[in-house]
Amino acid sequence: MLPPVIAGVDGSAESLAAADWAAREAARRDRPLRLTHVWNWHPRQEDGAPVTAAMGVPPTPLRQWGRHQARRVLRQAKERVRAVAPNVRPYDEQTEGPATAALLKAAEESELLVLGSRGLSGVTGFLVGSVAQGVVARATRPVVLVRADEEAADEHLPTPGGRPSVLTGYRDVVLGVDLGDPCDAVIEFAFEAARLRGARLHVVHAWQPPSPLGFGPGEIGLVSGPQRAEEWLGFLSAVLQIWRDKYPGVEVAETVVEGRAQSALLRAASGAGLLVVGRHLTDRPTGPRIGPVTHAAIHHVGCPVAVVPHE
């Protein structure tokens, strides 16, 4: 059996939006769709912490209640999926938590994992729950975060009159590339996402001028800003050429901008259908972490965000 697209569902509006998006993506990829619900019988247990022997075995009524709730949540998600993607036949799974650990295990079995992300906060932008953030920071497979108000028409361009529609072409897929460490897995994911949609791929690289204190005699950093931009654009084109050859049907737009990568991606993703960013799979003494660019993307970009882990 092919690895499925998996959506984590808990009955919330954001998880139902994630299930909808996952159903459409499963149809695009011709993959099975699995709906996964994780329930935790011990609500005071810190997510990610093991259940100790002192906690004992959960009373039978609590287990029964958890299973009943899981069946209700999964039934609701399946009905929603069938309404928005009638050709997709989801199957479901319920498991006990902690949620982060259970979803990380599910991610290992998936083509990609889709999770919901809460709505807009006037102070910090979009709120990413601790479970979703913990999964993004540790997953070894791609994770897509979907906002609570995401709908099928949001992936598509508006009509000439400005009305939402699912009959128009797809909005851009935006890819953030670090030319200091371009990663094949991230680039391939973005090209494939654009191919599946028949969408344009907009590739963005942000560069910052080197500090004058670091210049040596005759170093390239002494050239003008426009010249440096041209050099970065040439480098970006060279990095993408192998992928253009592999995906000849994908239209590619390339942008290099001077400034912070976070700001450049937020601007580029405005009006996009999907943003793709990478995350290093590194073992740090302080544990897994999300880099500043990915952190900004998942908290402030309004479209679905795909975080692709890579070495």
Rank of each mutant, 00 (worst) to 15 (best):
P160D: 14
T36P: 04
R75A: 13
H300A: 07
F215Y: 14
G302P: 01
D20W: 03
E155Q: 10
W65V: 06
E188V: 12
P158F: 12
W232R: 04
E254D: 11
Q45D: 08
A194F: 07
V204Q: 00
G125R: 12
W232E: 09
Q76C: 08
H295W: 13
A85V: 04
V177W: 02
L196D: 01
E188W: 08
Y170E: 11
P50D: 13
R72H: 12
R82V: 10
H205N: 08
E258M: 11
Q227H: 10
L145Y: 06
D283F: 01
A54E: 15
V84D: 10
G116S: 08
L62A: 09
E46G: 12
E150H: 13
Q76W: 01
G162D: 15
G216W: 08
F189M: 07
L62S: 09
D20C: 03
E251K: 15
M55C: 09
P4D: 09
D47P: 01
S237W: 02
R34H: 15
V186A: 00
E230D: 12
P309M: 07
T294Q: 08
Y170V: 02
Q241C: 04
R89E: 13
L145F: 10
D92K: 11
V51S: 14
A296P: 01
R279G: 04
P50W: 14
T60M: 09
R82M: 09
G278Q: 07
P164M: 10
R28Q: 15
A18C: 10
W39T: 11
G221T: 06
L233T: 01
G218T: 04
G134R: 03
G134W: 02
E150T: 05
R71H: 12
E25K: 04
P98Y: 01
L266P: 02
A253T: 03
